[in-house]
């Protein structure tokens, strides 16, 4: 996972509530057995005027000029400004993979769906929840100011606006630790907890043997 410490990035506004993961990455692209290469199909049904299929060269497809990410002023954006309940729907991690592959590192919204929120942090994305009034204000500022950039500092948990305002945000300490160090949490779990897991498992097996079918754990 890519570490995230601080980033000053161009902001793209996606002004619609309840953006679901089917919209972020349609199902036909979920047939891939890889983790990479989803960027060209991010928001496929909004970005293009035709139906996309896996493995296609997207450079010749008809573009929807009205879609925000197709507008020149948002080219190279790394901060996505969104509305409430962003990422609702399925658990597909292809959604954060696609957002990350496209170039986003930060998503700001009034609320996120639970599973998406979890998945995003495991892929180097920083999700920031701000109150609706602040998000509204940012939408206005982005709309009015071409080249609007936000300076997002994970360590200080602050967003600096071009106007010089500092917006503080909350982040779960464990997620922050993993993100700023680019850490894979499987390694952490095994290092810190292998013994505790084995002990738990022994007790669990003794009290509810019907939950286990095979022999004891095979982890060395």
């Amino acid at each position: 996972m890519k570490a995230f410490v601080r980033q000053k990035g161009l902001v793209a506004p996606l002004d619609r509530a309840n953006v679901d993961t089917d919209l972020i990455i349609p199902k036909q692209f979920l047939k891939s057995i890889k983790r990479t290469g989803f960027g060209p199909n991010l928001f496929d049904e909004l970005r293009y005027l035709d139906e996309g299929y896996p493995g296609q060269d997207c450079s010749n497809r008809p573009i929807n000029p009205e879609f925000v990410l197709n507008q020149l002023r948002y080219e190279g954006a790394s901060v996505l400004l969104a509305r409430k309940n962003f990422g609702c729907g399925s658990s597909r991690e292809h959604a954060p993979w696609a957002l990350e592959d496209f170039g986003f590192r930060v998503i700001i919204a009034p609320s996120f769906a639970d599973i998406f929120f979890n998945n995003a942090f495991k892929n180097g994305l920083l999700l920031i929840q701000l109150d609706e009034a602040t998000v509204d204000r940012l939408f206005d500022a982005v709309e009015q100011t071409p080249g609007y950039r936000l300076d997002v500092d994970l360590i200080a948990q602050k967003i600096m606006t071009p106007e010089g305002e500092a917006i503080e945000f909350e982040v779960d300490p464990f997620r922050k630790y993993c993100l700023e160090n680019g850490l894979d949490d499987i390694g952490l779990t095994l290092t810190d907890n292998s013994h505790a897991i084995r002990e738990f498992e022994t007790r669990h097996r003794a009290s509810q043997p019907w939950l286990f079918r095979g022999e004891a754990a095979n982890q060395a």
Partner: peptide, 21 residues
Amino acid sequence: AHGIGTSEVEHVLATQCLIQR
């Protein structure tokens, strides 16, 4: 019972556990 993403599928396979709140 709940849904998880692919990183968590890998985490469960490797550790039989999930990090949760």
